[in-house]
C-alpha cells in the first residue's frame, strides 16, 4: 500500500462511495458488510487505521479524522440496516394485534355505599362544609337528651335503640347511635360558632334483617350555625344539594315534619318516576331538616338569641339503592364479587 496521505484520501473517497451505495436487505448481508469493512482483523477500515503510524507525523492527525469519519459512516449504515431488518421482521403480517393484552391484576372496585357517601360529601365540600366525625357507640346524653328528646316521650319510640350491656350497672346509658345527630352536639361543644359541617357515618337500629331493613345503615348529617341563618338558607342549601345529587330537573317537595332537635322541621321528598306505578311515580323521603331547636343550642351553651342554625340528615342506602335499582338491602352487605364488580 502506498503510504501517503493522498493515496489514503482517494481510498477513503472510494470507500465512502461504496458504502453509500450499499444495499443491506437482510441480517446476513449486514453481517457480511460488517466483516468486510469493520471486522476486527480483516476489515478494510480496521486495516486502514494501521497505516496511520507509518504516515509522516504532520499528516497523522488529518488521517485519523478522515478514518474516524469513514468508520462512523460505516457504523451508522450498519445500524440503519439492522433496525430496518428488525422492523421488517416484526411487520404486521407477523404480529397478532387481536391477542388480549396481559393483565397483571383484576379490576378493583369501591362499594356502592362508599360511592354514594363520597358523592354526597363531595357536593357539600364544594359548598364549603367541613367534615366532622363521632363515635358509633354513644351515651344517652349525646344521642337523645342534648338533642331535646324528653325522657319519656313517644319520639324515642321512633327509634329502636340498641343498648350496650354495661355489666353490673345496667344503666342503659351507652347505646349504638341511632342517628348521626350526636356529632352536631360533639362539634358544637368542641368549638365556637360559626359552624358549617357535615358528618357522615354508620348508625344502628335494633331491627331484624329483612330485604328492606338492616340493623345498621349510613347517614350524612349537616349543621350550620351562625348569626342570621334562616330557614330560607336551609331550603336553598338542600335544594341545591338535591339538584346536584339527583339532577337539575329533579322534582322536589318540602313539607313540615317533626324532629325533637329542630323546629320548624321539614322533610324533603323527591319525585321518583316508576313507570309501573298507577300515578307514574311516587314521592320518596330523602332528607330530614329543620332549624336547630333553641333547646339544643342552650344544651351546648350557645346563645340562641344571637345565633340561629339549621341541621339536616339523610340516609345513604335509600338513594343509592334507588340510583342503582337495588331491591334487596342485604345484597349490600353480602359483598358477592359479581355484585361488587358492577361498581
Amino acid at each position: 500500500m502506498d503510504n501517503t496521505i493522498e493515496s489514503l484520501k482517494s481510498t477513503v473517497a472510494d470507500l465512502n462511495r461504496e458504502i453509500a451505495t450499499a444495499h443491506l436487505l437482510s441480517t446476513s448481508e449486514a453481517e457480511e458488510f460488517r466483516v468486510h469493512y469493520l471486522g476486527q482483523k480483516r476489515g478494510i477500515i480496521t486495516q486502514l487505521f494501521k497505516v496511520i503510524p507509518h504516515l509522516p507525523k504532520t499528516d497523522r492527525r488529518e488521517a485519523g479524522q478522515l478514518l474516524n469519519a469513514l468508520r462512523n459512516t460505516a457504523q451508522s449504515t450498519l445500524a440503519e440496516a439492522h433496525s430496518k431488518v428488525a422492523k421488517d421482521s416484526t411487520a404486521a403480517s407477523q404480529i397478532d394485534l387481536t391477542l388480549p393484552g396481559r393483565q397483571h391484576r383484576w379490576k378493583g372496585s369501591r362499594h356502592p355505599i362508599s360511592l354514594a357517601l363520597t358523592k354526597i360529601t363531595d357536593i357539600f365540600n364544594r359548598m364549603g362544609f367541613n367534615i366532622a366525625e363521632g363515635p358509633e357507640m354513644e351515651d344517652d346524653w349525646h344521642n337523645f337528651t342534648a338533642l331535646n328528646f324528653p325522657d319519656d316521650h313517644p319520639a324515642r319510640d321512633m327509634q329502636d335503640t340498641l343498648f350496650i350491656d354495661e355489666g353490673h350497672q345496667h344503666s342503659s346509658h351507652i347505646l349504638m347511635r341511632t342517628h348521626t345527630s350526636p356529632v352536631q352536639i360533639r362539634a358544637m361543644l368542641d368549638g365556637k360558632p360559626p359552624f358549617r359541617l357535615i358528618a357522615p357515618g354508620r348508625v344502628y337500629r335494633n331491627e331484624t334483617i329483612t330485604y328492606k331493613s338492616y340493623c345498621l345503615f349510613h347517614q350524612v348529617e349537616g349543621l350550620v350555625v351562625d348569626e342570621g341563618v334562616t330557614m330560607a338558607d336551609l331550603k336553598t342549601t338542600i335544594y341545591s344539594f338535591a339538584q346536584s345529587f339527583f339532577g337539575h330537573d329533579v322534582k322536589l317537595r318540602y313539607r313540615p315534619s317533626f324532629f325533637p332537635f329542630t323546629e320548624p322541621s321539614a322533610e324533603l321528598d323527591v319525585w321518583w318516576e316508576l313507570p309501573d306505578h298507577p300515578n307514574g311515580g311516587r314521592w320518596m323521603e330523602v332528607l330530614g331538616s329543620g332549624m336547630v331547636h333553641p333547646n339544643v343550642l342552650q344544651a351546648v351553651g350557645i346563645d340562641a338569641e344571637r345565633y340561629t342554625g339549621y341541621a339536616f340528615g339523610m340516609g345513604v342506602e335509600r338513594p343509592a339503592m334507588l340510583h342503582y335499582g337495588i331491591q334487596d338491602i342485604r345484597v349490600l352487605y353480602e359483598n358477592d364479587n359479581r355484585f361488587l364488580s358492577q361498581f
Partner: peptide, 24 residues
C-alpha cells in the same frame, strides 16, 4: 382527610374490592 382517598385509590388501582360488613 386526603390520606383515605389516597389509600382507596391505591387499593382500587391494585385490584382490591371494597366491602361493607355488619358491625354486629
Amino acid at each position: 382527610d386526603q390520606a383515605r382517598d389516597e389509600v382507596v385509590s391505591f387499593l382500587t388501582g391494585n385490584g382490591f374490592r371494597e366491602i361493607y360488613t355488619n358491625s354486629l
